[in-house]
Protein backbone atom coordinates (compact mmCIF):
# COMPACT_ATOMS: atom_id res chain seq x y z
CA UNK A 1 0.00 0.00 0.00
CA UNK A 2 2.76 2.42 0.90
CA UNK A 3 4.44 1.49 -2.39
CA UNK A 4 1.26 2.45 -4.23
CA UNK A 5 1.15 5.78 -2.41
CA UNK A 6 4.81 6.44 -3.14
CA UNK A 7 4.20 5.66 -6.74
CA UNK A 8 1.13 7.91 -6.83
CA UNK A 9 3.25 10.67 -5.34
CA UNK A 10 5.86 10.15 -8.03
CA UNK A 11 3.31 10.28 -10.83
CA UNK A 12 1.80 13.47 -9.45
CA UNK A 13 5.13 15.18 -9.02
CA UNK A 14 5.87 14.48 -12.65
CA UNK A 15 2.44 15.59 -13.71
CA UNK A 16 1.03 18.33 -11.45
CA UNK A 17 -2.13 18.60 -13.56
CA UNK A 18 -3.10 15.12 -12.37
CA UNK A 19 -2.57 16.18 -8.79
CA UNK A 20 -4.72 19.26 -9.39
CA UNK A 21 -7.46 17.19 -10.99
CA UNK A 22 -7.45 14.67 -8.17
CA UNK A 23 -7.57 17.50 -5.63
CA UNK A 24 -10.49 19.01 -7.55
CA UNK A 25 -12.41 15.74 -7.54
CA UNK A 26 -11.65 15.26 -3.84
CA UNK A 27 -12.97 18.74 -3.13
CA UNK A 28 -16.16 18.01 -5.10
CA UNK A 29 -16.72 14.79 -3.19
CA UNK A 30 -16.14 16.57 0.10
CA UNK A 31 -18.60 19.31 -0.83
CA UNK A 32 -21.14 16.70 -1.86
CA UNK A 33 -20.83 14.83 1.43
CA UNK A 34 -20.95 17.93 3.62
CA UNK A 35 -23.53 19.75 1.50
CA UNK A 36 -26.38 20.02 4.07
CA UNK A 37 -24.03 21.47 6.66
CA UNK A 38 -22.08 23.96 4.61
CA UNK A 39 -24.80 25.71 2.65
CA UNK A 40 -25.07 29.32 3.91
CA UNK A 41 -28.81 29.47 3.14
CA UNK A 42 -31.66 27.04 2.63
CA UNK A 43 -31.32 26.12 -1.05
CA UNK A 44 -35.05 25.97 -1.71
CA UNK A 45 -36.32 28.78 0.54
CA UNK A 46 -37.46 31.58 -1.76
CA UNK A 47 -37.64 35.19 -0.81
CA UNK A 48 -39.11 37.52 -3.42
CA UNK A 49 -37.54 40.55 -1.80
CA UNK A 50 -34.08 39.17 -2.47
CA UNK A 51 -34.75 38.09 -6.11
CA UNK A 52 -32.14 38.52 -8.84
CA UNK A 53 -29.44 40.11 -6.68
CA UNK A 54 -26.01 40.17 -8.29
CA UNK A 55 -23.07 38.53 -6.45
CA UNK A 56 -22.36 40.33 -3.19
CA UNK A 57 -20.89 39.70 0.23
CA UNK A 58 -24.20 38.33 1.51
CA UNK A 59 -24.80 36.16 -1.56
CA UNK A 60 -21.42 35.29 -3.05
CA UNK A 61 -22.89 33.97 -6.30
CA UNK A 62 -26.01 36.14 -6.22
CA UNK A 63 -29.65 35.03 -6.05
CA UNK A 64 -32.06 33.69 -8.64
CA UNK A 65 -35.49 34.83 -9.81
CA UNK A 66 -37.12 33.48 -6.63
CA UNK A 67 -34.49 34.95 -4.35
CA UNK A 68 -32.77 31.64 -3.60
CA UNK A 69 -29.06 31.73 -2.82
CA UNK A 70 -27.23 30.35 -5.88
CA UNK A 71 -24.17 29.20 -3.93
CA UNK A 72 -26.34 27.09 -1.61
CA UNK A 73 -28.17 25.61 -4.58
CA UNK A 74 -24.88 24.82 -6.31
CA UNK A 75 -23.58 23.04 -3.24
CA UNK A 76 -26.70 20.95 -2.87
CA UNK A 77 -26.71 20.18 -6.59
CA UNK A 78 -23.14 18.83 -6.40
CA UNK A 79 -24.48 16.10 -4.17
CA UNK A 80 -27.28 15.10 -6.51
CA UNK A 81 -25.27 15.29 -9.71
CA UNK A 82 -22.31 13.32 -8.38
CA UNK A 83 -24.63 10.70 -6.98
CA UNK A 84 -26.47 10.25 -10.26
CA UNK A 85 -23.21 10.04 -12.21
CA UNK A 86 -21.47 7.74 -9.76
CA UNK A 87 -24.36 5.29 -9.46
CA UNK A 88 -24.86 5.20 -13.21
CA UNK A 89 -21.19 4.59 -13.90
CA UNK A 90 -20.82 1.98 -11.17
CA UNK A 91 -23.85 0.13 -12.52
CA UNK A 92 -22.69 0.11 -16.12
CA UNK A 93 -19.08 -0.61 -15.16
CA UNK A 94 -19.99 -3.60 -13.01
CA UNK A 95 -22.36 -5.07 -15.56
CA UNK A 96 -20.27 -4.12 -18.59
CA UNK A 97 -16.96 -5.41 -17.26
CA UNK A 98 -18.37 -8.80 -16.35
CA UNK A 99 -20.38 -9.24 -19.55
CA UNK A 100 -17.50 -8.03 -21.70
CA UNK A 101 -14.94 -10.16 -19.91
CA UNK A 102 -16.98 -13.33 -20.41
CA UNK A 103 -17.57 -12.51 -24.07
CA UNK A 104 -13.88 -11.88 -24.59
CA UNK A 105 -12.89 -15.08 -22.82
CA UNK A 106 -15.48 -17.43 -24.28
CA UNK A 107 -15.83 -15.99 -27.77
CA UNK A 108 -18.19 -17.94 -30.02
CA UNK A 109 -21.94 -17.49 -30.13
CA UNK A 110 -22.25 -15.60 -26.84
CA UNK A 111 -19.68 -13.09 -28.05
CA UNK A 112 -21.38 -12.64 -31.41
CA UNK A 113 -24.85 -12.16 -29.94
CA UNK A 114 -23.73 -9.68 -27.28
CA UNK A 115 -21.58 -7.91 -29.85
CA UNK A 116 -24.52 -7.32 -32.17
CA UNK A 117 -26.76 -6.13 -29.33
CA UNK A 118 -24.05 -3.65 -28.40
CA UNK A 119 -23.82 -2.52 -32.02
CA UNK A 120 -27.57 -1.89 -32.08
CA UNK A 121 -27.37 0.12 -28.84
CA UNK A 122 -24.53 2.19 -30.21
CA UNK A 123 -26.36 2.88 -33.45
CA UNK A 124 -28.89 5.04 -31.55
CA UNK A 125 -28.09 8.66 -30.81
CA UNK A 126 -27.34 7.98 -27.17
CA UNK A 127 -28.82 11.13 -25.69
CA UNK A 128 -32.08 10.59 -27.55
CA UNK A 129 -32.11 7.00 -26.31
CA UNK A 130 -31.67 8.22 -22.74
CA UNK A 131 -34.48 10.74 -23.23
CA UNK A 132 -36.80 8.07 -24.54
CA UNK A 133 -35.98 5.76 -21.65
CA UNK A 134 -36.61 8.39 -18.99
CA UNK A 135 -39.80 9.43 -20.71
CA UNK A 136 -40.99 5.83 -20.87
CA UNK A 137 -39.89 4.75 -17.39
CA UNK A 138 -41.13 7.86 -15.62
CA UNK A 139 -39.70 11.18 -14.66
CA UNK A 140 -37.66 10.11 -11.65
CA UNK A 141 -34.04 10.37 -10.54
CA UNK A 142 -33.64 6.56 -10.47
CA UNK A 143 -34.63 6.42 -14.07
CA UNK A 144 -31.99 8.95 -15.04
CA UNK A 145 -29.46 6.66 -13.37
CA UNK A 146 -30.76 3.61 -15.22
CA UNK A 147 -30.87 5.40 -18.56
CA UNK A 148 -27.36 6.77 -18.16
CA UNK A 149 -26.11 3.35 -17.09
CA UNK A 150 -27.62 1.67 -20.13
CA UNK A 151 -26.23 4.12 -22.65
CA UNK A 152 -22.77 3.72 -21.10
CA UNK A 153 -22.93 -0.05 -21.06
CA UNK A 154 -21.77 -0.68 -24.67
CA UNK A 155 -18.47 1.11 -24.07
CA UNK A 156 -17.65 -0.99 -21.03
CA UNK A 157 -18.63 -4.21 -22.72
CA UNK A 158 -16.47 -3.46 -25.74
CA UNK A 159 -13.58 -2.27 -23.67
CA UNK A 160 -13.56 -5.25 -21.32
CA UNK A 161 -14.07 -7.64 -24.20
CA UNK A 162 -11.11 -6.30 -26.15
CA UNK A 163 -8.80 -6.17 -23.15
CA UNK A 164 -9.68 -9.69 -22.03
CA UNK A 165 -9.49 -11.02 -25.56
CA UNK A 166 -5.85 -10.04 -26.02
CA UNK A 167 -4.92 -11.63 -22.70
CA UNK A 168 -6.96 -14.78 -23.10
CA UNK A 169 -4.07 -16.83 -24.46
CA UNK A 170 -1.36 -15.23 -22.34
CA UNK A 171 1.03 -17.63 -20.67
CA UNK A 172 -0.20 -16.79 -17.21
CA UNK A 173 -3.78 -17.63 -18.16
CA UNK A 174 -2.68 -21.01 -19.49
CA UNK A 175 -0.62 -21.42 -16.33
CA UNK A 176 -3.73 -20.77 -14.26
CA UNK A 177 -5.53 -23.46 -16.21
CA UNK A 178 -2.64 -25.86 -15.69
CA UNK A 179 -2.91 -24.91 -12.02
CA UNK A 180 -6.42 -26.34 -12.03
CA UNK A 181 -8.36 -23.10 -12.03
CA UNK A 182 -11.91 -23.04 -13.37
CA UNK A 183 -13.02 -20.68 -16.10
CA UNK A 184 -15.20 -18.50 -13.89
CA UNK A 185 -12.33 -17.88 -11.49
CA UNK A 186 -9.92 -17.21 -14.34
CA UNK A 187 -12.16 -14.45 -15.65
CA UNK A 188 -12.97 -12.95 -12.27
CA UNK A 189 -9.71 -13.40 -10.39
CA UNK A 190 -7.09 -13.35 -13.13
CA UNK A 191 -8.34 -11.42 -16.12
CA UNK A 192 -10.56 -8.74 -14.61
CA UNK A 193 -7.97 -7.43 -12.13
CA UNK A 194 -5.53 -7.05 -15.01
CA UNK A 195 -8.07 -5.14 -17.04
CA UNK A 196 -9.12 -2.80 -14.24
CA UNK A 197 -6.32 -0.22 -14.52
CA UNK A 198 -7.18 0.45 -18.13
CA UNK A 199 -10.86 0.59 -17.21
CA UNK A 200 -10.24 3.08 -14.41
CA UNK A 201 -9.37 5.62 -17.07
CA UNK A 202 -12.63 4.87 -18.79
CA UNK A 203 -14.53 5.24 -15.51
CA UNK A 204 -13.07 8.62 -14.83
CA UNK A 205 -13.81 9.92 -18.32
CA UNK A 206 -17.26 8.42 -18.09
CA UNK A 207 -18.11 10.11 -14.80
CA UNK A 208 -17.68 13.50 -16.45
CA UNK A 209 -19.77 12.41 -19.35
CA UNK A 210 -22.51 10.99 -17.09
CA UNK A 211 -22.74 14.29 -15.22
CA UNK A 212 -23.18 16.15 -18.48
CA UNK A 213 -25.79 13.62 -19.50
CA UNK A 214 -27.77 13.99 -16.28
CA UNK A 215 -27.56 17.77 -16.46
CA UNK A 216 -28.62 17.64 -20.10
CA UNK A 217 -31.69 15.57 -19.28
CA UNK A 218 -32.75 17.93 -16.51
CA UNK A 219 -32.05 20.88 -18.77
CA UNK A 220 -34.74 19.71 -21.17
CA UNK A 221 -37.07 19.00 -18.26
CA UNK A 222 -36.62 15.25 -17.80
CA UNK A 223 -35.69 13.52 -14.59
CA UNK A 224 -35.04 15.97 -11.83
CA UNK A 225 -37.80 18.54 -11.43
CA UNK A 226 -37.86 21.99 -9.87
CA UNK A 227 -37.41 23.10 -7.19
CA UNK A 228 -34.74 20.43 -6.54
CA UNK A 229 -31.35 22.11 -6.99
CA UNK A 230 -29.53 20.56 -9.94
CA UNK A 231 -27.00 22.11 -12.30
CA UNK A 232 -28.94 21.38 -15.48
CA UNK A 233 -32.17 22.86 -14.13
CA UNK A 234 -30.36 25.88 -12.80
CA UNK A 235 -28.87 26.54 -16.23
CA UNK A 236 -32.26 25.98 -17.87
CA UNK A 237 -34.06 28.36 -15.51
CA UNK A 238 -31.33 30.95 -15.62
CA UNK A 239 -31.11 30.98 -19.40
CA UNK A 240 -34.16 33.23 -19.59
CA UNK A 241 -32.35 35.97 -17.69
CA UNK A 242 -29.15 36.18 -19.73
CA UNK A 243 -30.63 38.68 -22.14
CA UNK A 244 -31.66 40.86 -19.19
CA UNK A 245 -28.03 40.97 -18.07
CA UNK A 246 -28.46 38.67 -15.07
CA UNK A 247 -25.56 36.42 -16.08
CA UNK A 248 -24.85 34.92 -12.67
CA UNK A 249 -27.88 32.66 -12.78
CA UNK A 250 -26.30 30.65 -15.62
CA UNK A 251 -22.62 31.30 -15.28
CA UNK A 252 -22.01 29.65 -11.91
CA UNK A 253 -23.82 26.35 -12.51
CA UNK A 254 -22.31 26.25 -15.99
CA UNK A 255 -18.86 26.82 -14.57
CA UNK A 256 -19.42 24.13 -11.94
CA UNK A 257 -20.39 21.66 -14.67
CA UNK A 258 -17.40 22.54 -16.79
CA UNK A 259 -14.86 22.31 -13.98
CA UNK A 260 -16.28 19.02 -12.74
CA UNK A 261 -16.11 17.38 -16.13
CA UNK A 262 -12.62 18.77 -16.69
CA UNK A 263 -11.39 17.39 -13.37
CA UNK A 264 -12.73 13.92 -14.10
CA UNK A 265 -11.22 13.86 -17.57
CA UNK A 266 -7.81 14.98 -16.40
CA UNK A 267 -7.88 12.53 -13.52
CA UNK A 268 -8.42 9.67 -15.97
CA UNK A 269 -4.98 9.79 -17.51
CA UNK A 270 -3.24 10.18 -14.19
CA UNK A 271 -5.12 7.19 -12.79
CA UNK A 272 -3.83 4.92 -15.50
CA UNK A 273 -0.25 5.76 -14.62
CA UNK A 274 -0.92 5.25 -10.93
CA UNK A 275 -2.84 1.98 -11.14
CA UNK A 276 -0.69 0.12 -13.65
CA UNK A 277 1.84 -1.97 -11.70
CA UNK A 278 4.15 -2.14 -14.71
CA UNK A 279 4.68 1.62 -14.56
CA UNK A 280 6.38 1.13 -11.21
CA UNK A 281 10.02 0.26 -10.89
Amino acid sequence: MSATLRHAGWVMRGNPVTALAIAGVALLVLVAILAPWITPYDPIASSVAEALRPPSAAHLFGTDQLGRDILSRLIMATRLDLMIAASAVILSFAAGAVIGAFCGYRGGTLDRVVGRVVDVLMAFPLFVLAMAMVAALGNRVENIVIATAIINLPFYIRFARAEVNIRRDAGWVEAARAGGEGHLAIVLRFLLPNVLPAMAVQISLNLGWAILNAAGLSFIGLGVTAPTPEWGIMVAEGARFITAGQWWLVAFPGLALMLTVLCFNLMGDGLRDILDPRMRT
Binding site: A170, G171, W172, E174, A175, A176, A178, N194, P277, R278
Partner: peptide
Protein backbone atom coordinates in the same frame (compact mmCIF):
# COMPACT_ATOMS: atom_id res chain seq x y z
CA UNK B 1 -4.33 -32.23 -13.56
CA UNK B 2 -1.87 -32.12 -10.71
CA UNK B 3 0.27 -34.83 -12.24
CA UNK B 4 0.87 -32.98 -15.51
CA UNK B 5 2.36 -29.53 -15.12
CA UNK B 6 3.96 -27.17 -17.58
CA UNK B 7 6.72 -24.57 -17.62
CA UNK B 8 6.09 -21.91 -20.22
CA UNK B 9 8.40 -20.43 -22.78
CA UNK B 10 8.39 -16.74 -22.03
CA UNK B 11 8.90 -16.01 -18.34
CA UNK B 12 7.68 -12.45 -18.91
CA UNK B 13 4.36 -13.61 -20.21
CA UNK B 14 3.73 -16.58 -17.96
CA UNK B 15 3.29 -14.80 -14.62
CA UNK B 16 0.15 -12.89 -13.71
CA UNK B 17 1.31 -9.26 -13.44
CA UNK B 18 -0.98 -8.75 -10.44
Amino acid sequence: RRDIQIVFQDPNDSLNPR
